[in-house]
Design a protein around this nucleic acid. Structure first.
Lengths: 154, 154
DNA sequence: CGCAGAAAGTGGCATATGCCACTAATTGCA
DNA sequence: TGCAATTAGTGGCATATGCCACTTTCTGCG
C-alpha cells in the first residue's frame, strides 16, 4: 500500500498514461527532429496520407481529437506547405485535407527517421510486447466510458 | 499488413499512446470538472501532496516532465492559491513547493471525483488489467531509450 | 416552401509541454 | 582562494489540446 507514495508512480491510470506519453513523446520527437516534424505532426500527416483526402471530422474521429484542436494542429502544417485543404463537392460545410507533394516528400523523409525510433523502442520491449501494448491501448481508446448516471432520468 | 491502413490505428507506439491519452484524459477531465481541476493539475497536486515539500526538479523528475513545463503548469495553481513555493534553506537555487490549506482541501475534493472515474474505468477493463497496464506503462517510462550511435565514434 | 434543429468548422481563451537562451547559486578543483 | 563547469529555475516562443460561442450549410418535416 505504501507504493502509493512511490515517487512518480501513481494508481491513476490517466496520470500514468500521460507520464509515459511524455517520455515516449520526447523520444520520438528527438528521432524526428532532423525532419523538423514533431511526433504529433508526423502522426497527423501519416493519418491524412492513408485516408483518402479525409474530411476534418473524419481525421478528428480517427485520432480521437477534438475537431477544433485538429484545426489548430493543422495550421502550422498548412503554413509550411505540407498540407492543403479544399471544400467537399457535395457538402460545403465539409473541408477535406490532403498532403501536398512537398508534404508527401516530408512524410517519406520522416518515416525513415521514425523507423529508427520505432525499431529502437521495440528492440527494448520486444515487438510482441509493443504490439500487445498497442492493442491494449487501442482497446482502452475504444471503451465506451461514461460517468455513472449523470442524469437520473426518473 | 493491410491493418496499417485501418483508420485510427497505427503501428506507431507513440501515436497510439497519445491517442489513448487524449481519450482517457477527456474522461478524467470530465469527472474532475466539478472541482475546476484538470487531470494534469490533479496529478500534480497529488504528487506534491505525497512528496514532502519537493523541489521543482524532484517533481519534474518524478512526473517525467520538463522542468520549465512544470514551472508553467504550476503557475495557474499558484495563481489560484492551491500551491505556494519557498526557497530551500541550504541551496538558494532550489525552489520547493507545497500545497496551501486551500490546495489540500481542493485536492481532497478532487480525489472524491477522481475515484469515481477511476472506478468507472476499472469496472470496464478490470482492476487487474488496469494494474497490469500501469505496470507496463511504468516499465516503458523507465526504459533507457537512446537513439543509435548518434556520434559514429569510429 | 420555410423554418427548427443538426452537423462541420472557426476563433478565442486557457492549460499542457518542450526547447533554448539566460541568470543566479553552488561545486569542484588547480 | 578563484574561476570554470554544473545545477536549478525562469521567460519567451511554438506546438498540442479542449471547451465554448458562433457562422454557415444541410436536413427533415409540417
Amino acid at each position: 500500500m505504501t507504493d502509493l507514495q512511490q515517487p512518480g508512480f501513481s494508481r491513476c491510470n490517466n496520470a500514468t498514461l500521460r507520464r509515459t506519453a511524455r517520455r515516449l513523446g520526447r523520444f520520438y520527437d528527438e528521432a524526428l527532429a532532423p525532419s523538423g516534424l514533431k511526433g504529433t505532426q508526423f502522426g497527423l500527416l501519416f493519418q491524412i496520407s492513408v485516408s483518402g483526402e479525409p474530411a476534418m471530422g473524419a481525421i478528428a474521429e480517427a485520432l480521437i481529437m477534438d475537431l477544433s484542436a485538429l484545426g489548430h494542429t493543422l495550421k502550422p502544417l498548412v503554413r509550411d506547405g505540407y498540407v492543403e485543404t479544399f471544400p467537399d463537392k457535395d457538402d460545403r460545410r465539409v473541408k477535406r485535407v490532403r498532403l501536398t507533394p512537398v508534404g508527401q516528400a516530408k512524410l517519406d523523409e520522416a518515416i525513415k527517421l521514425w523507423s529508427v525510433a520505432q525499431q529502437q523502442f521495440e528492440a527494448r520491449i520486444g515487438t510482441e510486447q509493443a504490439a500487445k501494448l498497442r492493442a491494449t491501448l487501442d482497446g482502452v481508446a475504444a471503451l465506451d466510458l461514461e460517468m455513472p448516471a449523470a442524469a437520473p432520468s426518473r
